[in-house]
Design a protein around this nucleic acid. Structure first.
Ligand SMILES: [Zn+2]
Ligand SMILES: [Zn+2]
Ligand SMILES: [Zn+2]
Ligand SMILES: [Zn+2]
Lengths: 150, 150
DNA sequence: ATGATATTGAAAATTATTTTATAAATGGTG
DNA sequence: CACCATTTATAAAATAATTTTCAATATCAT
């Protein structure tokens, strides 16, 4: 919705390092599965049981603004977060939502191909692969052999 | 959320052609700007003032399931719909949300590059360019010359 | 026309996320 | 250390897009 913020840049904030923010960052750095805000909330709660979900959202936003983590906005209803801030692509399981890194190098040149061919000023691109994780592949091939209602 | 539906295929529906569905399809086919459900609702309301937003959503879903239109799930909070069902990429304005077609051919071979390198079964990919439409580019360069608060 | 089933409209529910309002914590300064 | 201007946390309410529910029609192949 409010994608304006980063562009019409408001006044600079001086961020403080709070225990909450510190724990959130530590937990995200431990998680290799591209967790959602809710999954991070659950992990952080084990360290700080009184933390609120709103705090987790706010800090994830700040941390990605600061470049400490990366916010992944995939074609999914939930956003995910990545400790790895380097540009890389992902593959998402269409059935369970699992997200893995896609072992393919970023292709900056894709944007060049568009240059001059569009009236837009190109700022970037987003590439996401869609697929089935091994577990879901298995479940579905079973289902195919034994259909739900004959 | 429920991306399961198309996969664990439920029982076949026999769809009827209702006046509502017909008008919705006609209106989408007239719109070249990748409209959202709400924008389609507003257009359809001029023909059928008593239609409900829920009906529009339901029919857009059915029509894309049937391949009559294409549902675009971009990295945005709102989904958009496209009368053009051919595979093609889009470029989205990060500021106002305008979506244009991206004049670049679909690259099926991207998926081949991943084949064997991931444990996922690859089903497809999604590529979206991010940028600024001419109007927003202009507004922002003005803003840069006259910052909001001195 | 009849009946089985699909569809509608209106409202309520859901989901992910953001905002709001207080109270509490932080960090620089005298 | 004490003061103060912020920033931040918490809990709850608000938002926004979409989906679900359900009783009342509408549709279409007999
Ligand atoms: Zn899966
Ligand atoms: Zn990653
Ligand atoms: Zn724009
Ligand atoms: Zn298009």
């Amino acid at each position: 919705m409010d994608e304006h913020r980063d562009i019409t840049l408001a006044k600079k904030h001086i961020y403080r390092m709070t225990p909450q923010r510190k724990v959130i960052l530590e937990e995200v750095r431990k998680m290799n599965n591209h967790p959602s805000a809710d999954e991070i909330y659950e992990a952080v709660r084990k360290k700080l049981p009184r933390i609120s979900l709103g705090t987790v959202y706010r800090n994830l936003e700040i941390l990605s603004e600061q470049g400490e983590i990366q916010k992944l906005e995939l074609t999914d209803s939930v956003n995910r977060y990545d400790w790895d801030t380097r540009k890389h692509y992902h593959i998402r399981c269409v059935r369970c939502g699992r997200v893995d890194n896609a072992p393919i190098a970023p292709m900056q040149q894709l944007e060049n191909e568009l240059y001059g061919a569009t009236v837009f000023t190109i700022l970037g691109h987003r590439l996401e692969f869609i697929g089935l994780c091994p577990e879901c592949s298995k479940k579905l091939s079973c289902l195919k052999n034994n259909p739900p209602d004959k």
